[in-house]
């Protein structure tokens, strides 16, 4: 009976998530490009062979992982600090809570364009500050070694509020009497953070890691606007590569292969990161 009741919802989910996935997997075994007149022709896994030998795919994978790992961990730290601060009672807290959310509410393309001009040489404010200090030009977006850090900064600025919000919600579920009991037993504030707050926040941290990792692996708009994947392809993400193949090169077969390939990578790395996180679980929690 219950099975029957969830059937419509299950069907809807299969329809919305399942069909495109199956279609992409199917397409990844076909040549479908401007050369074939966009007619899919089965090519016996040639796309997959090409993917495995495609240096650019692996370089982009590395760059996407690098971007996701650094931005998500930075976001987590900063968001925890913000959440702790916003969980305290002080005047003007509500106003600050609202302001903190602003970056999250801004459309990514708009803020990415903003960052592009902020980092602009010679007119961007960052360049002005660097000049004031008396240093030479910074040129962060023009250097293949540093441009990706600028994109991480843009991502951290935008999505930290999102994690802060999740963690704040988590903080509010921790009963105050736990802290009181802990203090009565002689624990310090610092100890309370590691023995109560963080262990109790674990499910929320896990949730935000999963959410953000999935998003960061699929990063597109921010990078497309800020650097367009350059310089020298140093900021190109898997999503940009898949997009280029589909929309610019009209090579839908190979684009699907890239998408399914990166999907597999993302699933594995998410599982791996949960595993890593669970290893850290051994931080001793406090219980009454």
């Amino acid at each position: 009976m219950i099975g029957l009741l969830i059937l419509p919802a299950a069907l809807l989910i299969i329809l919305i998530f399942g069909t495109p996935l199956i279609r992409y997997i199917w397409l990844s075994f076909h040549a479908s490009s401007v050369i074939t007149g966009l007619v899919p022709i089965a090519n016996k896994g040639a796309n997959w062979q090409r993917l495995i030998n495609d240096q650019r795919f692996w370089q982009d994978s590395f760059q996407t992982f690098r971007f996701a790992a650094l931005s998500v961990s930075l976001e987590l730290f900063i968001a925890l600090a913000i959440a702790l601060l916003l969980n305290q009672k002080w005047r003007g807290r509500n106003l600050v809570r609202a302001i903190t959310l602003l970056p999250w509410a801004l459309p990514t393309t708009v803020m990415a364009l903003g960052w592009r001009w902020i980092f602009n040489t010679p007119y961007g404010p960052i360049e002005l500050i660097v000049n004031l200090i008396g240093l030479d030009q910074f040129n962060i977006l023009s250097n293949p070694n540093t441009a990706w850090l600028a994109t991480v900064l843009g991502d951290v600025w935008k999505t930290t509020p999102f994690i802060a919000l999740i963690l704040l919600a988590g903080l509010q579920t921790i009963p105050q009497d736990l802290y009181e009991a802990f203090k009565l037993e002689g624990g310090s504030n610092k100890e309370a953070l590691f023995k109560i707050t963080i262990p109790m926040l674990k499910p929320y941290i896990l949730l935000s890691i999963l959410f953000r990792l999935a998003q960061a692996f699929g990063v597109f708009d921010l990078i497309q606007v800020m650097t367009g994947g350059g310089p020298a392809g140093s900021t190109e993400s898997l999503a940009i590569y898949a997009y280029l193949n589909a929309m610019r090169f009209l090579d839908f077969g190979y684009s699907s292969t890239i998408m399914i390939g990166s999907f597999i990578l993302i699933v594995f790395s998410s599982i791996f990161s949960i595993y890593l996180f669970n290893k850290f679980k051994n931080i001793q929690g406090y219980s009454r």
Partner: peptide, 19 residues
């Protein structure tokens, strides 16, 4: 019809040269 591909390759490599 393959212009977008070959232009993309050229852009990447020129960018590499310039930076």
């Amino acid at each position: 019809p393959l212009y977008a591909q070959i232009s993309d390759v050229l852009q990447r490599h020129l960018s590499e040269i310039l930076t």
